[in-house]
Design a binder for these strands. Structure first.
Lengths: 163, 163
DNA sequence: GATTTTATGTCAGTCATGTTGACTTATTTC
DNA sequence: GAAATAAGTCAACATGACTGACATAAAATC
């Protein structure tokens, strides 16, 4: 154990630095999901419904296959929550114009309301963390998070200048 | 909508910045957990077992109540995975010396091996992200993540100087 | 010393969310 | 015309969460 107990020299990645990274992700995700989960429970829905509503809101007209690619679950798993959301009129389906096999998914007004109320707690949490941390820290956060995400999905996050 | 489409001015938090923050957390956590999940599936265990093994390794001698406080699940939920881990001799229990009602939890040698092999993929992912991002970005990452975590748990992450 | 609280564990039932495998239908592509 | 693709369905199952009720041992309090 080369435990020099030096000042911070993060390019010499100690065991403890890495462990702290693991724990930051664990606690942040735990707290980040707690509020919407509690709201969802009250209306008989779960986190999986939130994810679907979120990404349909994010990419209006998204196809089922595209959604499966993002969520990385099976179509049978998606089917259940998507059926719930369509039945309860949070999400509308319409056939694709170019490819009529596709079902393009969009939020109804009711779905927009749900998405907003669920994600607002998360937006507030992010906003408060960003404000407290400052612009430079936010850029560092972005950079490290992108490094954690598999390379295939990094293109979903265009650099600040391009936005 | 005051959409000025300016250059990056992160103190004016636009809708899109916040949405990007939400998605960074979603994708990072999804990819961060995928590798250990796949390894666990091969030996008939799940993510819940990983969490327990991780935190018992992190805090040797931790009590059941303390572990429940970290995981934020019910004792019935913990009981099942903890029993598995004790039965399969990944975790050992011994009565507390000061309070003999407590069961102090520690990893066995077998448990240490399991914890290491599971978390190694995660450590490697963090290490690679940290190296690619650089020291300043890592500090920003830490700061923002701490802002996302509920205040009660921030003390678990001492500032760099104090480590 | 008796009572209450705490730490832990257990039994039973339920729900949400994931899985695999098999199969169907409509449509598009080759 | 045949094969591939997009979507959906049925069935069975595993995991990990939950609630509620109850039990035991030990510690803390009155």
């Amino acid at each position: 154990m080369t435990d020099i107990k030096s000042g911070p020299n993060p390019l010499f990645l100690r065991e403890e630095d890495l462990r702290q990274g693991i724990e930051l992700l664990f606690y942040a995700y735990r707290d980040f999901t707690a509020e919407p989960d509690a709201m969802l429970a009250k209306i008989g829905l779960g986190r999986a419904h939130h994810r679907v509503v979120y990404f349909v809101g994010r990419y209006p007209g998204i196809t089922v296959t595209e959604l499966l690619g993002i969520l990385q679950i099976t179509k049978q798993s998606l089917s259940r929550v998507l059926s719930d959301l369509v039945d309860q009129e949070y999400i509308a389906q319409r056939p694709g114009t170019k490819d009529r096999r596709q079902r393009l998914l969009t939020l109804t007004d009711k779905g927009v309301d749900l998405e907003r109320s669920l994600s607002d707690a998360q937006r507030a949490r992010i906003a408060s963390a960003y404000r407290a941390a400052g612009a430079a820290a936010v850029e560092g956060f972005r950079t490290v998070m992108l490094g954690i995400i598999d390379a295939e999905d990094r293109a979903k996050f265009p650099p600040p200048g391009k936005r």
